[in-house]
Design a protein around this nucleic acid. Structure first.
Length: 767
RNA sequence: GGGCGAAUGGCGGAACUGGUAGACGCGCACGACUCAAAAUCGUGUUUCGCAAGAAGUGAGAGUUCGAUUCUCUCUUCGCCCACCA
């Protein structure tokens, strides 16, 4: 048996695809298009197994669609702005651009070795001027549409790194890099007005039929629509304050009102700004843990003011006003009406401060003497103890009826509230897209005219300064716009902005006038299948959807609200973890197996403990380098294994045995190929046409079904069945044409999965 | 605290709209080849039982001629969100 030389075969075809530009595509209006996109990588230096899985899944789909006759767009690019480059550059005194470009070159060659059907002519990199120039134009466009604004707001501030951190960069209340507690700081920041589209973003979800339900639910919860009303409470006790507005979803429980709680950041707090007791209380609030869970289950504390609030439905009833640590300033009006009997949090607060607990809803089967004592009752029921509201069915009828009454009395009105907050896009960082505005002496914002774009980052600057390196670039900061001497904005854009429109750029990667070209986008968009990790379910996917809303807003030339027609979220790649007797993590490379037990390679007397399989991470040392895998076993074997063990949406366990078995299977397919070629040449007289033809048809039917439904693990099972069938069939005698035709069909069907092997075999039988 | 989802051999997983549970792979066992090992090939592998046979898809109920699949209750695990008024 001849050994299959995967290295030369894989090289040969990769070179062929490169030279022939096999995967370069152009608009062809006679053909149906298919836009297959995987989330582009951050160029960290090397590809990891997660990339291998993501891009293999995408490649199988792209190749399959191409075989079906679609005009397939399958591009790749680099999400190349961001903190790792800046940090690496800082530590090693390098240029972030150089660091990034070296990484891109390396990762690109690694991706090519996987045999991906990428149109490399469309490669883009978000840190290139060609790319961010257009992003700056979009920024100014949105500024004109009033979808971008600047305002003072609380942000996560890392006191060591002196920068704002995104929410996702704050882990357990600490900066992910510095490890110190993040502070809340009020800063003037740029925002995208994403909340303007709350309802549209919610409605759009219903049109995304093939998105995983899980992701749609997550986005829905994130947008967080709630129906209720705003209520004006009359305030007594201070000349300057007449009323306070609250948002509530349960106005029908107003007769159960027993306190009003304000956020410590509420306007009214100004009155107490010099009160030492209040300052004390404020400090106390900031002490109670910073993690979200700690906040949620933490103790509720309050500060009693000398104010009283009047119950609008029962003006004789007056209740105290508190500041409380559980009231958020940026939801509703930063003020809550407290109804202890029917809200657990209000109940806890009332118990602690000895406030009234008035029961106003009873469960259906209780009598009118029902009383809340041990815990709040938040279920449905009938309104009681509420004068003219008594007897209404809660919450359905009672809420609507109460709103009607409040509106009549002009002390409240129906309101829909969203949880979604505007997107803070300012970052005090060097390695990002500069925000194309400047300020005059009075701080007024001036747009950088489009003739002066892009606003380029200064080169070769000192990054080892406190805070944003751009702040100390005094020369760069000076700009003259239409004769006026101005100072540039030094904040750069959040890198999520870059990834919010890159899929448009792939349609027209070379267009110099604008971020994309209408004809290209009209043909290619939307992305038919988007594939990536579920960790982006909210942020990136929501931001991209918003960006399309924003570009389409007041625009006759562009109307595309949903960028991703189909979405598939793949699972993670996991591996067993290993520890030695001293509890140190041990890498799989340092281990050998003897009689089913694991020992340290360099010292066989040391037994290794095998831990649970967990997602690959550097800290647990359970990573496998794809480059080593490809050079030892080949790309086809790697592709085969990453698809074989688990359905793509679930986590997959990487194992040595698994990759070896895939490698052997490739060899078996090769041996099968040689046998079949031998048989074809014999061109037997007798023929068993029907049996092999029947099998081939069934095989193709199964493969098609599994390709269409992302049952990619089952494709591999089908291939094993095919092997077992054919290896027995070569014993039978077939006519040349029968065997050849059927075998060709089978090779074509497995081409998306093992493209190198399949192409090589197809070439061999055709000559 | 809220939401979403999952549970099938030693392991990863199959089973199309309710119709032979365990496809395919890993692992394991035995056999062939070999002086031997590796590789390769073959056979077997849910559990109990020598067998005939019986039980069996987290637990319990229900619908049905028939349930891994549908309904309800519970248990465990995973993921996401979290003081949202």
């Amino acid at each position: 048996m001849e050994r299959y030389n995967f290295k030369s075969v894989e090289n040969k075809w990769q070179k062929f695809w490169d030279e022939e530009k096999t995967f370069s595509v152009k608009i062809n209006k006679n053909k149906k298009k298919f836009y297959c996109l995987e989330m582009f990588p951050y160029p960290s230096g090397k590809i990891h197994m997660g990339h291998v899985r993501n891009y293999t899944i995408g490649d199988v789909l792209a190749r399959y669609k191409a075989l079906q006759g679609f005009n397939v767009l399958h591009p790749m690019g680099w999400d190349s702005f961001g903190m790792p480059a800046e940090n690496a550059a800082k530590q090693n005194k390098l240029d972030p651009r150089k660091w990034t470009e070296t990484n891109i070159a390396n990762m690109k060659s690694q991706l090519k070795k996987l045999g991906l059907s990428i149109d490399w002519d469309r490669e883009i990199s978000t840190c290139s001027e060609d790319y961010y120039k257009h992003q700056q134009k979009f920024f100014l466009e949105l500024l004109d549409k009033k979808l971008v604004y600047k305002k003072e707001n609380y942000v996560n501030w890392d006191p060591i790194d002196e920068t704002v951190l995104a929410n996702e960069q704050v882990i357990d209340g600490k900066g992910w890099r510095s490890g110190v507690n993040v502070e809340r700081k009020k800063l003037s920041q740029w925002f995208f007005n994403i909340s303007k589209f709350s309802q549209d973003l919610l409605d759009g979800l219903d049109t995304l039929d093939t998105w995983p339900n899980k992701v749609k639910v997550m986005q829905k919860n994130w947008i967080g629509k709630s129906f209720g009303c705003e209520v004006d409470f009359e305030i007594e006790g201070n000349q300057e304050i007449n009323n306070i507005k609250c948002f509530t979803t349960r106005p029908d429980t107003l007769f159960g009102f027993s306190f009003l709680a304000l956020s410590v950041d509420h306007e009214i707090s100004k009155i107490y700004a010099n009160d030492p007791n209040f300052i004390n209380f404020k400090n106390e609030c900031s002490k109670t843990g910073t993690t979200e869970e700690a906040l949620a289950i933490g103790e509720k504390i309050g500060f009693k003011t000398n104010l009283t609030a009047v119950n609008p439905l029962n003006p004789k009833h007056k209740v105290p006003v508190y500041f409380a640590n559980f009231v958020l300033m940026d939801y509703g009006f930063g003020a809550v009406f407290g109804c202890p009997a029917h809200d657990q949090r209000d109940f806890d607060f009332a118990k602690k401060y000895g406030l009234e607990i008035i029961t106003v809803v009873k469960p259906q089967d209780e009598n009118n003497n029902f009383k809340v004592t041990k815990e709040a009752y938040s279920g449905p029921g009938i309104i009681i103890n509420s004068d003219y509201l008594n007897g209404l069915k809660a919450p359905e009828d009672s809420v609507l009826e109460t709103i009607r009454i409040l509106e009549d009395k002009k002390i409240g009105k129906k309101k829909i509230n969203f949880r979604l907050k505007d997107w803070g896009i300012s970052r005090q960082r060097y390695w990002g897209c500069p925000i194309p505005v400047a300020y005059d002496e009075s701080g007024n914002v001036h747009k950088v005219p489009s003739s002066m774009l892009p606003v380029k980052l200064p080169q070769n600057i000192d990054l080892n300064v406190k805070g944003n390196p751009l702040d100390s670039q005094t020369d760069w900061k000076k700009i003259n716009i239409e004769g006026k001497n101005l100072t540039r904005e030094t904040d750069t854009l959040d890198t999520f902005v870059c990834s919010s429109w890159y899929f448009l750029r792939f349609c027209s990667p070379q267009d110099t006038n604008y971020g994309f070209n209408k004809e290209d986008v009209d043909y290619w968009m939307p992305v038919d299948q988007y594939i990536g990790g579920v960790e982006h379910a909210i942020l990136h996917l929501l931001y991209s959807r918003f960006f399309m809303q924003a570009l389409s807003h007041k625009n006759d030339n562009f109307n595309l609200l949903e960028p991703f027609g189909g979405l598939f979220t793949q699972g993670m790649v996991c591996h067993e973890t290993y520890k030695d007797s001293d509890n140190n993590w041990i890498s799989p490379d340092e281990i050998e197996t003897i009689d089913g037990k694991k020992y340290l390679k360099k010292d066989n007397s040391k037994i290794i403990r095998v831990g649970p399989s967990e997602s690959m991470s550097k800290s647990k040392k359970n990573t496998i380098d794809p480059e080593n895998i490809i050079s030892s076993y080949g790309a086809d074997a790697a592709r085969l294994f990453i698809l074989s063990d688990s359905p793509p949406e679930k986590d997959v366990q990487w194992s040595e045995e698994g990759i070896i078995s895939s490698f052997k299977f490739i060899q078996k397919l090769w041996n099968l190929n040689l046998k079949i070629i031998e048989e074809i040449e014999k061109d037997h007289e007798k023929d068993h046409n029907s049996e092999i033809t029947k099998f081939t048809n069934k095989f193709i039917e199964r493969m098609t079904k599994n390709l269409d439904s992302f049952g990619y693990n089952k494709l591999i099972a089908n291939m094993h069945e095919m092997y077992s069938f054919l290896i027995k069939q070569v014993e039978y005698k077939y006519k040349k044409t029968t065997l050849k035709e059927n075998y060709e069909k089978i090779l074509t069907a497995i081409n998306p999965i093992v493209p190198h092997l399949s192409n090589e075999c197809l070439e061999m039988i055709s000559c």
